[in-house]
């Protein structure tokens, strides 16, 4: 359960990171208009999509390194029944 909690904590941290990443104020920093483009793509779009991809990558990294719950859950085995 310890490692499990560790992963939970990391995921909650990522959730908070995502809140910052997509906060209107932070997004506003990259709102530099249509004329400024990186690789031909407006900076705002680039920021949002790359930020999004990075967040997903981090979630994946945490989730995949988490230990699996060994208890099979379907059909639920309930000793008390």
């Amino acid at each position: 359960m310890k490692d499990d909690n560790r992963s939970s904590e990391r995921l909650v941290a990522l959730f908070l990171f995502g809140m910052v990443l997509f906060n209107p104020l932070v997004v506003g920093l990259f709102d530099v208009g249509a004329e400024i483009r990186l690789f031909g793509i407006p900076v705002l779009f680039l920021y949002l999509f790359i930020g999004w991809a990075v967040l997903i990558g981090l979630i994946a990294a945490v989730a995949e390194s988490a230990p699996k719950d060994s208890k099979p859950t379907s059909p639920p085995t309930r000793p008390a029944d």
Binding site: L11, F15, I59, A63
Partner: peptide, 9 residues
């Protein structure tokens, strides 16, 4: 996306 990061909990 954010909710699923939280989804573990």
């Amino acid at each position: 996306t954010l909710m699923f990061a939280f989804g573990w909990v």
